[in-house]
Design a protein around this nucleic acid. Structure first.
Lengths: 203, 203
DNA sequence: TTGGAAAAATGAACAGCGTTCATTTATTTT
DNA sequence: AAAATAAATGAACGCTGTTCATTTTTCCAA
C-alpha cells in the first residue's frame, strides 16, 4: 500500500497504456503511422512524456513484439497434448503459419522488422527468438527419440525447418507472392505448407 | 545526331548517375542514409532535380532492385551448362544463397524491403520476381521430365523451394539468426542449405 | 546575333519524423 | 505552508520525402 508501490504500479499502467495505443495504431494504420506523436495524441499526453516510460521508439516495438510471442506461444500451448512428436511438429508448423496469416503485421514485427532487434538489451542476442526456438528444438529431440531425423544436428535441423516456414510467411508479408501472377496467396501458403510437410515426412 | 536524341541520352545518363550515387550510399551506409538530399549532394545537384528523373524515392530503389536481379541472373548464367537438372537446381540454390550472403543489403532490397514493390507499375504484379521465378520453374520442369517431383504442381513446388532458401537468407538479413546464441550465421546458412538439399534429394 | 520559347535546375517551403531539455505543473515529504 | 521531488510539457533541433514558384540554361528562329 506504500506510495512507492503505487508509483511503481502506475508506471506499469502507463507503459501498458502507451503499448496499447501503439499496438492499435500499428495494427490499424501500419508502422509508419505509429509515430510517437500519434501515440501521444491517442493517449492525450505530450510526445515528450512517452520518453519517460520508454527509451525510444524501438523499445516500444520491442515490447509489442514480446506480446506477439506470448500470443503465438499461447496458440501453441494446446498442441503440447499431441502425443506423437512428428504429429505435433506438423501441427506446430500449421499454427505458426496460421498465426502469420491472421496477424500479418505482428508477424512482420516479430520476424522481419529491425526495430525489436535494435532494442535488444544484449545486442548480439534475441531473447524471445531463443526461447521460442527451444520449443521447436524440444519437439525435434523427441522426434529423434522416435527415430526420425537420425544423426542430424538439432540447431541446423531446426533452422532448416523454421526457415522453410518463415520463407513462405515472409514472402507473403512483403508481397513477394505477387511473383505468382495468377495464384492466390492463400493457395501458395496452404499448398506450400502441405508440400513441405510431405517432403519432411519422407526425409 | 539529333538534339532530341542527345537529350534522351543525357536523360538516361543522368538517371544512371543518380542510381550509381544512390547505390553507393545505400550499400555503404544503408537505406536510412540514402536520402534524396544525400544522393543530390553526392552528385552535386539540388534535391528537386532528382524528381525530374524519378517519380519518387521508391522508383529509385525499384531501379536498383532491377540491377540486383540482373546481377543475380548473371551469376546464374554459367549454370545453364550443367546438364543434369537436379544438379543444376542444387547449384542454383547455392548461388542464390551465395548472392544473399555476399550482397546482404541488395538481397534485402530485392526480397524484403517494401520500396521496390510499391513502385511496381502494376501494383498487383512483380515483374522481376515473375521473370526470375521462371528460371526456377523451368529447371523444375526438367527435373520432372527426369522423373523427380512427379505429380507435383510447379507453382507450389517452386514456392516451397524458394521459400526454404529465402527463409534462411531473410532470417540472416534481419538478424534473426541471433536466436542461435552460439552458432555462427555462416554455419547456419551453410548447414541449413546442406540439410535442405539432402531433404529435397530424398523426396 | 539576338530575342523569345522551351527545358532544366534551383532552393525555399510544407508537413512529417525521433528525440532532447529547459521550463512548468503536480505530488510528496518535511 | 514551504521545500523537495517527481511528472509532464511543448518548443526546438536536425532530419525526412516531396512540391513548386522562380531562376538559369539551352535551343531555335528571325
Amino acid at each position: 500500500m506504500s506510495i512507492i508501490e503505487r508509483k511503481k504500479r502506475e508506471k506499469e499502467e502507463m507503459r501498458r497504456t502507451i503499448l496499447d495505443a501503439a499496438k492499435e495504431i500499428f495494427l490499424e494504420k501500419g508502422f509508419r503511422s505509429a509515430s510517437i506523436r500519434n501515440i501521444a495524441e491517442k493517449i492525450e499526453y505530450s510526445p515528450g512524456t512517452i520518453y519517460l516510460y520508454f527509451d525510444d521508439k524501438d523499445a516500444i516495438f520491442h515490447a509489442l513484439h514480446e506480446d506477439g510471442f506470448q500470443r503465438m506461444l499461447a496458440m501453441m500451448q494446446p498442441l503440447q497434448h499431441v502425443a506423437d512428436p512428428m504429429e505435433r511438429l506438423v501441427a506446430m508448423g500449421r499454427v505458426y503459419m496460421e498465426f502469420a496469416y491472421n496477424n500479418k503485421e505482428l508477424y512482420d514485427l516479430m520476424f522481419i522488422m529491425e526495430a525489436p532487434i535494435l532494442a535488444e538489451a544484449n545486442r548480439a542476442r534475441w531473447e524471445m527468438g531463443d526461447r521460442t526456438l527451444n520449443f521447436l528444438k524440444q519437439v525435434l529431440i523427441e522426434c529423434q527419440d522416435k527415430g526420425h531425423f537420425s544423426g542430424m544436428n538439432i540447431d541446423y535441423l531446426s533452422y532448416t525447418i523454421w526457415s522453410a516456414l518463415h520463407g513462405m510467411c515472409a514472402l507473403y508479408c512483403r508481397n513477394r507472392c505477387q511473383a505468382y501472377e495468377h495464384v492466390k496467396d492463400t493457395d501458395l501458403l496452404k499448398n506450400g505448407m502441405d508440400y513441405f510437410v510431405s517432403i519432411i515426412l519422407k526425409a
